[in-house]
Design a protein around this nucleic acid. Sequence first.
DNA 1: AAGCTCCTCTCTCTAAAGAGTGATGCGGGT
DNA 2: ACCCGCATCACTCTTTAGAGAGAGGAGCTT
Lengths: 212, 212
Amino acid sequence: MAAELKTRRISVILADDHPVVRDGLAAMVNQQADMEVVAEAGDGDEAIARYEQYRPDVLVLDLRMPKRDGVAVVQRVLELNPKARILIMTTYDGDEDIFQCLSQGAKGYLLKDAPRQEILSAIRAVSEDRPYTSTTVAAKALQRMGKPSLTQRELDVLQLVAEGRSNKDIARRLSITEGTAKTHVKAILTKLDAISRTEAVAVAHKRGLIHL
Amino acid sequence: MAAELKTRRISVILADDHPVVRDGLAAMVNQQADMEVVAEAGDGDEAIARYEQYRPDVLVLDLRMPKRDGVAVVQRVLELNPKARILIMTTYDGDEDIFQCLSQGAKGYLLKDAPRQEILSAIRAVSEDRPYTSTTVAAKALQRMGKPSLTQRELDVLQLVAEGRSNKDIARRLSITEGTAKTHVKAILTKLDAISRTEAVAVAHKRGLIHL
DNA sequence: AAGCTCCTCTCTCTAAAGAGTGATGCGGGT
DNA sequence: ACCCGCATCACTCTTTAGAGAGAGGAGCTT
């Protein structure tokens, strides 16, 4: 313990668009002897810039942020440094979000309603390059396994379906025929195991495939 | 300024299901000379219990919480003390949520991405029984004005529509005929100014009429 | 080159949704 | 007593959605 205090502290960057959340995390982290916050970011672009600037041990990242989506930030940061240690911390528990982040190389994923202790131990785990995922989140990630994933085109169509567009309207917007739009919608219904388009939207939202 | 320091501090209760957010708010509030956090709550029931126990000057309340919805908490607390000063602090900016809370008597409403200063001045305003609403939120509240509100039955139907149920299915679940279900759906479409049920769900979600 | 996925388009046919209109009965309020 | 909003049901008619079954071509992998 005393020996550990002499080692360099874990450097942390916090990226979250809510000042309140950053304050809360910063207070928690800086209270610990073995870690410190070296920078904060309020949006995706800033998160990447600060990461480049400080190269911290751990990047704590919210998923839904202005300017650049959390998943995109994960991708970009790992591109800059494949050994980056990223801990996702968000309120979104859709299996798609979780799957995307973890499969792209994030080291940890936990929810904002996690107790303080769990958050701190997650940061420590990730700082040592050990993956950390709470049991409930891990269960969701496993749920996602085996489920068919949608193609990009299907996601495009799904987005429009979620906005309440008709097949004809979707066809017009994507410059395809109504028949093709129907084909995509049909594929979506099959993959999401939904009977109607409205149910498909509900399922997709629950899974985090779309964000209304 | 020096005189103000001698007056009693503003007592605050924080109700939010995220420990991190509570920590952040608590740190911010306790750093101020003129206010202090006297209790915290992690769900709706607890918020009511703590309010009764401490009767604070201000209750800072998150809307989406376990056990009891924020709107229900507002209602109950104002029932216990019609002069209660409640500040809503949430991520949800649907006009229905805003309208519900403010029309029921909440003194303020702001979003979690608000800067620190705005949050603190909102607490001060509310503590003096002055209403505080950020301009963007106020604009939303005005949007809601004039728009027709749905009846309880229509909300029941809307909920099922949002889950992807068919008219026939909805009729079965509510023990009414399919024709009646159609009538309700039609009324919903008219009131929400939507062409299809899927669009109605999108609009309803945006407005905060339903929470998927 | 063969195999693969994905996007595209074209049929038919049935079921469901939505527009339009009207009507009954219940309950609350003036 | 009267009015009015609400929930309930009924009827017709048009449009849209969705099931089913192919099929061609672009692009990528092995």
